[in-house]
């Protein structure tokens, strides 16, 4: 509790006063400061005044807190993965091949600079070119293979869809044909009935015109 900080009135116990005010003084510190208060009117006055300030401070209450909208930002790798996922396989392969070729070239260029020429590294220019060509052709072959696989898959899918559509169209066509047949049969039956009625009508009329039974 020893400190040399004096308050405006010359008392050196301002930190003790603050600890006492906020109830953070230990039991012995509290007892010591209370003894001091009996002797020091200035500290007593200040303690009361600070108590009033604390009461005043308590008039400013924050009644509500707005809800913080928090959406965890996506990691850079996730964003990259999403971006890559938007491209078809062949484009991804092409990009990878390009990147691989660039890395090889960059590595060789650095290596070349460090060894002051390719010859001293034990690799001739032709060998390096052959390595690069091989790397590029390998990547190309890989891409072509992927492309062929993708194409074959598309073809199979397309053929299956085509077959299904043909079957559907055929079934619809048969159903329509059947409906037309049924309609025609009904029409023929109706026409036959009408024909029979006409015949019988005319037969009766003939009988009436020629009551003697001679039709002509």
């Amino acid at each position: 509790m020893n400190n040399t900080n004096r308050n405006q009135l010359g008392c050196d116990r301002k930190e003790d006063l603050v600890a006492y005010l906020y109830g953070e003084a230990s039991a012995s510190e509290r007892a010591s400061f209370e003894r001091h208060l009996n002797e020091c009117d200035d500290c007593g006055v200040e303690l009361k005044a600070f108590g009033r300030v604390r009461d005043d401070l308590s008039t400013w209450q924050v009644g509500f807190a707005p809800r913080t909208e928090f959406v965890p930002p996506k990691a850079k790798m996730d964003l990259l993965r999403e971006l890559i996922g938007m491209f078809p396989v062949w484009a991804r392969g092409l990009a990878m091949a390009g990147a691989a070729a660039a890395i090889v070239l960059m590595a060789l260029s650095v290596y070349g600079n460090r060894t002051d020429g390719l010859g001293s590294a034990g690799l001739s220019e032709q060998q390096v070119q052959a390595m690069v060509s091989k790397a590029v052709s390998d990547e190309r072959a890989k891409i072509q293979q992927q492309y062929q696989t993708e194409l074959a898959s598309f073809k199979t899918q397309l053929a299956a869809e085509h077959q299904a559509q043909l079957q559907l169209a055929n079934a619809e066509h048969q159903a329509k044909l059947e409906a037309v047949k049924v309609g025609l049969r009904a029409e023929i039956r109706k026409a036959n009935q009408q024909n029979g009625s006409l015949r019988s009508f005319f037969a009766v009329e003939e009988d009436r015109s020629y009551p003697w039974g001679d039709s002509r």
Binding site: Q8, K14, E15, L17, F50
Partner: peptide
């Protein structure tokens, strides 16, 4: 404590 004291003053 010192800053608190001065602030309250």
């Amino acid at each position: 404590k010192s800053r608190l004291y001065t602030g309250l003053q």
